[in-house]
């Protein structure tokens, strides 16, 4: 069993480290710095932290203005609020002029399990994917969070970075290079390829173990970079398999499943594991919700068995 590490804490520390090295970095938050972990910047560089109050739209446009003075703003809130509440500001103030603003959506998917549908994001990736000029990254674990923070800093342009609230198993080898746009092979296999991201990569690895007893071999790919996405690499990683499964903590509409389907077309049968066009709800744990919505290794096993007839 892989060790667990908290990605939002890793994110906050990675941002602090980056801010220590690069004085252009500034952080903005809408009264959630204790949860998004932008608080580390707030505590260490109070001049470069901007509390914007519970006003996400203004925060996002202020970030645009800061970037126009050469700063590299990281604007934070929960995924559901930064994408939903400030959509037009993201589109008009940042994406159209391709400004160098990093939007950090924390507590994505069902990970804010207790707070219910209003605080859980099932459609944020679909929305951000559809915006021209936007890069969308969903790190798989704390190691990849650290790599992604570095990578998006080197990239000049708007980025949506999706960070989970839950501890996640560490599966990334820190020696492997993270490249925006490149899917990462996590585990080799020959029968079915699973393109997954976030916690669903671990679920796919678990499914792989479960299927091994039946002589079925899964190839597991971590698609942390949903947009851009290297189409040729995706096609190559599907080479030789009999079917494809996508797995994500997001609606089956518009997210990773669609991104892969856009590339693969009808070349191979494709099944999606995701949230079936529903909102979230409250529960006593993230795991309970993942199970309720079918975001489990068992769902992946089931889809694999159906694909192999």
């Amino acid at each position: 069993m892989a060790r667990l590490e908290c990605p939002r804490d890793a994110y906050g520390r990675a941002l602090l480290e980056a801010a220590t090295q690069d004085s252009r970095i500034v952080a903005l938050d809408a009264d959630l710095s204790g949860s998004t972990m932008s608080r580390y910047v707030k505590e260490n560089f109070p001049d470069r932290f901007f509390e914007m109050g519970i006003a996400e739209q203004n925060m996002v446009s202020v970030a645009a203005g800061l970037s126009l003075t050469g700063k590299i703003p990281f604007a934070h809130s929960f995924s559901v609020f930064i994408v939903g509440r400030a959509y037009d500001q993201i589109r008009q103030s940042i994406a159209v002029p391709k400004l160098n603003v990093k939007l950090v959506g924390s507590s994505y998917g069902l990970s804010d399990f207790g707070d219910g549908a209003t605080h859980q994001s099932v459609e944020d990736v679909a929305i951000m994917r559809a915006v021209p000029n936007m890069t969308v990254i969903v790190p798989v674990d704390a190691v990849e969070v650290r790599q992604a923070v570095k990578a998006i800093l080197e990239y000049h342009g708007p980025v949506y970075l999706r960070i989970s609230r839950s501890p996640m198993p560490v599966i990334t080898d820190c020696r492997d290079e993270f490249v925006i746009g490149k899917p990462r092979l996590v585990s080799e296999g020959k029968d079915i390829v699973v393109y997954a991201n976030g916690l669903m990569v671990s679920a796919a690895l678990k499914a792989k173990e479960m299927l091994e007893e039946q002589g079925v071999s899964l190839r597991v790919i971590n698609v942390s970079s949903i947009k851009p996405l290297d189409a040729e690499a995706v096609r190559q990683l599907a080479h030789g398999v009999k079917g494809i499964i996508t797995a994500e903590e997001h609606s089956i509409i518009g997210g990773l499943g669609c991104a892969i389907s856009d590339i693969i077309g009808e070349a191979l049968p494709l099944r999606r594991v995701g949230i079936a066009d529903r909102f979230g709800q409250s529960a006593s744990s993230h795991g309970e919700l993942l199970e309720h919505y079918g975001l489990t290794p068992e769902s992946i096993v089931e889809q694999a068995q159906e694909l192999l007839g």
């Binding site: 500034v26 901007f50 739209q57 203004n58 996002v60 446009s61 202020v62 970030a63 645009a64 203005g65 800061l66 970037s67 126009l68 003075t69 050469g70 700063k71 703003p73 037009d88 500001q89 589109r91 008009q92 103030s93 159209v96 002029p97």
Partner: peptide, 19 residues
Amino acid sequence: CNTGSLGQGLSIGLGMALG
């Protein structure tokens, strides 16, 4: 900067002022 969707310019201006 880009404007057109009304209501955003003052926020962008504030960002420039803070920067």
